[in-house]
Nucleic acid binder design. Structure first.
Length: 567
RNA sequence: CGGGGUGUAGCGAAGCCUGGUUAUCGCACGUGCUUUGGGAGCACGAGACCGUCGGUUCGAAUCCGACCACCCCGACCA
């Protein structure tokens, strides 16, 4: 491809309002352009990288027996009503009416459609197991798009669906996808860690997210370097320290004016925060007030809390009025004397004697509150966030916290969607059974961005060979002085064209100064930069620079032709 | 949805506070000549209803109001 003809431009200055390296470089080097918040065009360079990433995913899905198909982007709303998700999902699901007034949705994913297809096609156990997948545009009206291709509203996802006779079959399919993901991300040049994750609105019995560690990642991961324990903080178990062995003391009121925060309360009474209990108030989607009690020094984990109370549509913070209506006082709240609320107590609080807690009066707390004696929890569960240095739930060593970007997930769905669609098969036993599903997603564009995150330097992108849009970047210098330079450059370009689509090279034939050409070559990031000039020819051939390592050598023209062909 | 910020040419910015000729600069772009190993030089040129709508004023990029868009933090997030 001649750079003089390529539909692209590089930007000399950093775009304003851009934070992440991948966002900045993909814009500056002419791979992508925004059309709206979280909506991007892929320019030819971006499209080629995208296609290479898809190709790798494709090969690894095919290797485990995946069959590629394609399902629609626009769905009748009824199929989402049947699965219950039409009501369970908020504004990120875009709903609209067609010309006849029928309710439609823009698909966020395709479990419902797979369920319907299974109901239509699969009749017998002999047709199972099977695995289907497609690459399809998803529209999710995210509350906030950010970080370029990392979090967008429209994006292409590979979503795969395993269909099995039973849980044992699902386990096998799930493991196959797990292994396929490991191979896929390795080929993309991404270092990932698979973490246990929340099953959320999807239900199901287990899930992993594949995470790339990145300080700008949106998820917090709990990792143990000693034993390899890895979980999303949303679900990471906490190993509790032993409760203090202490007899329960009589409860007593204490004046604590102006102590609406745990920090001020602990300072006022001159006690550690660990000797306090704090209350946090939430409301479920169906209007139940939830009072969560955790030790003062810990944070409430909303995912765990939500799961503990079976809040299928999540939680929102309660208002002061809602808290008071249940007989509690914001800032001085506790379940003592409260009514009409579900009380969820963290395991650690339940095991800790003589804590300071609110007395539901402004400026007053109780000393020596004891769970069970002073109030009765509706639920006792682990509802706090793991912290750096907490003991690992598996081996007891200290865990570390890291941020991560989710590049893929795998999910044991079970029969939720096949039940909704009535997708059953006749087993060997002559009876009907529901088909057991799993679902497996990889966001293509986000992976492109993550590859840039992990493969760039201050000069620009440095693509790994397997995802680079072109095999090499050829810079011709002094072609107007020495006709041999142009002649050789043309020849190398032709060698790439003849060697196959992914062996094409970028040929900078523009009438630009050497500085511009080198700067652009480094920014665009092809794995090899080839320089042809009177000087290189005098030195015996072509100067070859490894973009990632900076290693430079002069090679013969024949060697360079072999390199372009992939030798 | 809450908080903060920004909208002036393709990109990056100045001008706005303190209203007043033809809106400024760098890069990019066009033409010509020179130039080719690290973001070239000279000359000429084109490109902006100053986010939108409304208001104040003799006069608005500038002051006021509403709206829209984008970015950041949070909420949210298979």
């Amino acid at each position: 491809m001649r750079l003089s003809q390529l539909f692209f431009t590089t930007l000399r200055d950093d775009p304003a309002d851009v934070e992440m390296a991948s966002h900045r470089l993909l814009l500056r080097a002419g791979y992508i352009r925004p059309l709206g918040s979280g909506i991007y065009s892929l320019l030819p360079l971006g499209k080629r990288v995208n296609d290479r990433v898809e190709q790798i995913i494709h090969e690894e899905q095919d290797r485990i027996g995946g069959q590629e198909m394609e399902m629609p982007v626009v769905h009748p709303a009824d199929i989402w009503r049947a699965s219950g998700r039409y009501d369970a999902i908020g504004a990120e699901l875009t709903r609209f009416k067609d010309r006849n007034g029928r309710d439609m949705v823009l698909a966020m994913t395709h479990e419902e459609v797979v369920g319907i297809l299974l109901a239509d096609i699969v009749k017998s156990y002999r047709q199972l197991p099977l695995m289907v997948y497609h690459f399809q545009t998803k529209w999710r009206d995210e509350p906030r798009a950010r970080a370029g291709l990392i979090r967008v509203r429209e994006f292409v996802m590979k979503d795969a669906y395993s269909c099995d006779r039973d849980e044992a079959g699902l386990d096998i399919s799930y493991q196959a996808q797990y292994d396929a993901y490991v191979r896929t991300f390795e080929r993309l040049g991404l270092k990932t860690v698979a973490v246990a994750s929340d099953v959320g609105i999807m239900g199901g019995s287990g899930a992993h997210e594949f995470m790339v560690l990145n300080p700008a990642g949106e998820d917090v991961l709990v990792l143990c370097e000693a034993c390899g324990y890895a979980a999303n903080r949303q679900v990471a178990r906490i190993e509790h320290p032993k409760a203090a062995a202490e007899a329960a003391l009589p409860r007593e009121e204490v004046e604590t004016p102006g102590t609406t925060t745990i920090a001020s309360l602990a300072a006022f009474l001159d006690i550690p925060e660990t000797r306090t209990a704090k209350a946090a108030f939430f409301v479920t989607g169906d209007g139940r007030l939830v009072t969560a009690i955790v030790r003062g020094d810990l944070e409430v984990n909303e995912t765990k809390l939500s799961n503990a109370v079976g809040a299928s549509t999540g939680l929102r913070p309660a208002t002061a009025e809602e808290i008071k209506a249940a007989g509690m006082e914001p800032g001085y709240g506790s379940p003592i004397g409260a009514h009409d609320t579900t009380v969820v107590v963290d395991e650690l609080v339940a095991a800790s004697p003589n804590l300071v807690a609110g007395a539901n009066k402004v400026g007053v707390h109780y000393r020596s509150v004891n769970v069970g004696r002073d109030f009765t929890p509706d639920v006792t569960a682990d509802i706090t966030n793991a912290r750096e240095g907490d003991p690992c739930p598996t081996c007891g060593k200290s865990v570390i916290l890291r941020n991560g970007i989710e590049v893929g997930n795998i999910f044991k769905l079970g029969t939720k969607f096949t039940d909704a669609a009535g997708a059953t098969y006749l087993g060997e036993d002559g009876k009907e059974h529901p088909i057991v599903m799993g679902s497996y997603g990889i966001g293509v564009g986000r992976n492109v961005a993550c590859v840039v995150e992990d493969h760039h330097d201050e000069k620009g992108i440095a693509w790994p060979e397997e995802v680079a849009p072109y095999a090499a970047h050829l810079v011709a210098i002094g072609a107007n002085k020495d006709p041999q330079v142009a002649e050789i450059a043309e020849r190398l370009h032709a060698v790439g064209e003849a060697a196959g689509y992914w062996r094409h090279i970028l040929y900078d034939d523009r009438n630009e100064s050497p500085g511009v050409k080198f700067t652009d070559a480094e920014m665009l990031g092809m794995p090899w930069i080839l320089t042809v000039s009177p000087r290189s020819l005098a030195a015996g051939g072509i100067e070859v620079t490894n973009r990632a390592t900076g290693e430079r050598s002069t090679r013969s023209i024949e060697d360079v032709e072999a390199l372009i062909r992939g030798g």
